[in-house]
Design a protein around this nucleic acid. Structure first.
Length: 715
DNA sequence: AGCACGCCGACT
DNA sequence: GTCGGCGTGCTC
């Protein structure tokens, strides 16, 4: 921008807007007629479409737009839309005598588009280099990345970092083979067990785009069912994408696809592959030589050709949330893809998230379930041990384990392995009514109450102190925090059955499978090995630890984990039994007993709607130093229907403790505010936050605040 | 983040 | 006149 331009703006500060526009227009016309670009070097330009619009690869929000560069004649051929380029970028660049340009540093970018002329006033710099002719960012992927960036108030460059793997020259130089012809449509297989299963598969095979929330029957067949859905989609001549939360389930779907389709039909995109392999597989997908993909969360952006189906398995698993800003979630991204590409959508799991229930409730997706009788037949028998039982149970007090659990373990060990689910350490207890166990909630915003110290209660959302709490359910006025120590219980179990081997599976060392022989398998949630032929029984000893977490999702998450363990147990007709040590009146416990995760999610959804919780409302968390946060919120121009809760102080990070993304730097006192908007205003909220953040960053001095749409831990 | 531009005070 | 300090805003 020239000096004249700037002084023109200043001189017109008091002028009417039309006048201002007129002045700008005049300056523009006089100075820089829209014509072929001039470059500083005056090099020969491409004859057709000599301007390249480039997305510079900097995650900074205020650079989240395209920059125009001139295309030199010699790069004309290679400079196609979608290729990686290098350009000079930075204020360091300056024009020196003779109209030549120097300075500015070389940075990476993507060529987004070729156009005839530029809106930019002034001479364009030339593309420095086309890194490779491989068009890695096509219009479809760009559009998706843009939509995801907008949804999460993040920058396009941040999304592209997740969506386009780093280049590897050797991988690129190898040609990819042509795709094999479509396979025949599959037999319905296990899909026959679901009410509309055959129809769903048939629709996929005939090129349809059905959308379903699938409540999978317990047992290991889900992977094969997903593979059949993929095959049906391939049979229609389209591609398919499956995203699972971790490497183990990815391996299961991978095996099922190989069994059904043979080798070379699909790609496995997981985080643990090396850079070369990763890029090679990704390229094979992009080039269309592989039409089906299974992978973990980064695969959600996989550039599958002519996408016909997206699948997400177990969407409640935290593994589906990306750890890098702006933290996109697989379910949400695949929803966007299904809508944008008009392709089929399949969300499956043994359990059911509130978000999944909402997809059905809103009519966006149809439920895909088995009838009650079949569900009951496939599930194990679930028995509960509540506080009353424990109180009456002499043995339990002595040995810290209920008699029922002993019996079930002993019986089970006669015919096979017995799973013992124990809690992970580190759950923060939530306060609940000592009498009826209803969670204690803030009377103003319904956020969870937490114990400050011995006496004081404070809302974790809005920060208000609660001095005279009483239970709205039963009128009780005493609170209790629930703490459990069940690890030792498992050890005791081991001592009680000395003839039986004890195997453990946990965070550090995860067992994949265990044999059919009798054994005690002690596992933390999510790390349960699969038992050949199913477990004879399972003991779920962590009821209170799971329900006691100060998290909106505590109930849903507890149920998901219980079901995740119980689904590995034999059906009740084959003697499969589950014992859960938790109060049988609690909603998630009842849902487990009835094996009704959907009913549970539907009720939770209704309750969330009533209380103004996500996903019925959209929430964003904004955190940062108190002054910066206050300034941000004051100037953010939030939608009129936005409601700001808080800010409240965040816990100060202790030195030596592992930090999670979004935690304040050690020793700094940060605050966090929650902003919530009603349904329909989510996009406006994201836009307002993004704009405000960009303005702050552009001004330079302003300290950045952290923004997270759909925060996972809203207390 | 870097870096030039421009305004303003100090000095030849 | 002209040199240079720092505050502001831009990067094709």
């Amino acid at each position: 921008m020239s000096r004249e331009d700037r002084s023109g703006d200043e001189g017109a500060a008091g002028a009417a807007p039309e006048q201002l526009a007129l002045i700008r227009e005049t300056v523009r016309r006089n100075k820089a007629p829209k014509a072929k670009p001039r470059t500083w070097r005056g090099a020969a330009l491409a004859k057709e479409l000599p301007v390249a619009r480039v997305l510079v690869d900097k995650g900074v929000l205020h650079l989240d737009r395209y920059f125009d560069y001139a295309v030199p004649e010699e790069l004309d051929e290679a400079a196609r839309p979608g290729v990686r380029v290098r350009v000079r970028f930075g204020a360091g660049g300056r024009t020196v005598r003779g109209g030549r340009r120097e300075g500015g540093s070389l940075i990476d970018g993507f060529l987004v588009e070729r156009v005839a002329e530029s809106d930019y006033q002034g001479p364009l710099a030339a593309l420095a280099q086309v890194v490779s002719p491989e068009p890695v960012l096509d219009a479809e992927l760009l559009g998706l990345a843009r939509a995801v960036a907008d949804r999460y108030a993040g920058s396009l460059a941040d999304i592209l970092q997740l969506a386009v793997p780093p280049r590897h020259a050797r991988a690129e130089s190898r040609p990819s083979p042509p795709p094999p012809p479509p396979p025949p449509a599959p037999e319905p297989g296990g899909w026959q067990r679901y009410v509309r299963g055959r129809e769903f598969l048939a629709s996929l095979a005939s090129g349809g785009a059905p959308r379903a929330v699938w409540t999978a029957l317990p047992g290991p067949q889900w992977a094969e069912e997903i593979a059949r859905a993929v095959q049906a989609t391939l049979a229609s001549g389209r591609g398919a994408l499956v995203v699972v939360p971790a490497g183990r389930p990815a391996a299961r779907v991978d095996a099922a696809l190989t069994a059904l389709l043979g080798e070379g039909r699909h790609a496995l995109l997981t985080a643990d592959a090396g850079p070369e392999k990763r890029y090679r597989e990704w390229l094979a997908v992009r080039r269309g030589s592989v039409r089906a993909v299974v992978g973990t969360r980064a695969a959600m952006f996989a550039p599958v050709r002519d996408l016909g189906l997206v699948v997400v398995w177990d969407d409640g698993d935290a593994g589906h949330s990306d750890e890098h800003a702006p933290f996109p979630h697989v379910r949400e991204v695949l929803e966007l893809r299904a809508t944008r590409d008009r392709c089929a959508f399949l969300l499956g799991g043994w359990s059911c998230t509130v978000e999944a229930a909402q997809l059905v409730e809103s009519g966006w997706a149809l439920p895909l379930v088995a009838d009650r009788e079949r569900v009951r037949g496939a599930a194990p028998l679930v028995r509960t041990v509540g506080d009353g039982d424990l109180a009456r149970d002499e043995a339990a007090r002595a040995a810290r384990l209920p008699s029922l659990a002993w019996q079930v373990a002993r019986d089970g060990l006669r015919s096979g392995p017995v799973l013992v689910q124990v809690p992970r350490r580190g759950y923060v207890p939530r306060m609940a009514c000592a009498r009826c166990r209803a969670p204690a909630r803030c009377r103003h915003c319904a956020g969870p109450l937490q114990a400050q110290d011995a006496a004081a209660l404070r809302c974790a959302w809005c920060g208000r102190d609660e001095e005279s709490w009483h239970c709205p359910e039963c009128g009780g006025f005493r609170l209790r925090a629930q703490v459990v120590g069940a690890r030792r219980t498992a050890e005791e179990l081991g001592r009680a059955f000395p003839a039986v081997p004890v195997r453990t599976s946990g965070r550090e060392q995860i067992l994949d499978t265990v044999p059919q022989t009798p054994a005690l398998v002690v596992s933390t949630p999510g790390a349960e090995p699969v038992a050949e032929g199913g477990y004879a029984a399972a003991l779920l000893l962590d009821g209170w630890a799971m329900l006691g977490r100060p998290d909106l999702r505590a109930g849903e998450e507890a149920l998901r984990r219980w079901i995740g363990a119980a689904a590995l147990v034999r059906e009740q007709g084959a003697g499969g039994t589950v014992v859960i040590v938790a109060e049988p009146t609690l909603r998630p416990v009842q849902a487990l007993v009835r094996w009704d995760p959907v009913g549970h999610a539907v009720r939770e959804l209704a309750e969330r709607a009533e209380l103004g919780f996500p996903p019925v409302s959209r929430m964003a968390a904004v955190s940062g130093p108190p002054e910066a946060l206050a300034a941000f919120l004051a100037g953010a121009g939030l939608p009129a229907d936005a409601e700001v809760l808080g800010p409240v102080p965040l816990p100060v990070a202790e030195a030596g403790r592992p930090r999670r993304a979004g935690d304040p730097p050690p020793g700094e006192r940060w605050e966090r505010a929650l902003v919530r908007v009603p349904p329909g205003s989510g996009a406006a909220l994201a836009h307002a936050l993004k704009t405000a953040q960009a303005a702050r960053l552009a001004r330079g001095g302003g300290e950045a605040v952290r923004i997270r749409i759909d925060p996972p831990d809203i207390g």
